[in-house]
């Protein structure tokens, strides 16, 4: 469950980083964002990735978690790439929905313990 949370956080993080790149914005959002918003999105994205790492560590410990994050990031980025290719309009939705879902997973993980 914690790993699922990590994956969702990675998806949300990468989606935010995707949206922060101005070359993707016309397709994904229909308009360009100004540089201040971009910077904030980038910060959010990196925070998401860092949180994904912490979730991995929480699930598997420092050693295994550090291995797992490589796989989780690859999978999360793949999800964003596929969204970018097939459902680019849903990217903003992915960025917004990812974190709450991850939090839900964390709560369930805590309850299961």
């Amino acid at each position: 469950m914690m790993l699922l949370a990590a994956l969702l956080l990675a998806c949300a993080g990468f989606a935010a980083l995707y949206l922060a790149m101005s070359r993707h914005q016309p397709e994904a959002l229909g308009r360009r964002l100004d540089e201040r918003v971009n910077r904030r999105l980038r910060l959010l994205g990196w925070t998401g990735l860092a949180a994904a790492y912490l979730a991995c560590v929480g699930a598997l410990g420092w050693a295994r978690g550090s291995v797992a994050i490589a796989g989780v990031l690859a999978l999360g980025a793949l999800v964003v790439v596929l969204f970018g290719t097939y459902r680019v309009r849903a990217m903003a939705w992915l960025a917004r929905i990812g974190t709450p879902c991850a939090l839900l997973c964390l709560v369930i993980a805590a309850l299961l313990r």
Partner: peptide, 13 residues
């Protein structure tokens, strides 16, 4: 050493 979820990540990679 990998548990099942981590094993699937390995497989995917």
């Amino acid at each position: 050493y990998a548990s099942m979820p981590l094993r699937w990540l390995y497989f995917f990679c």
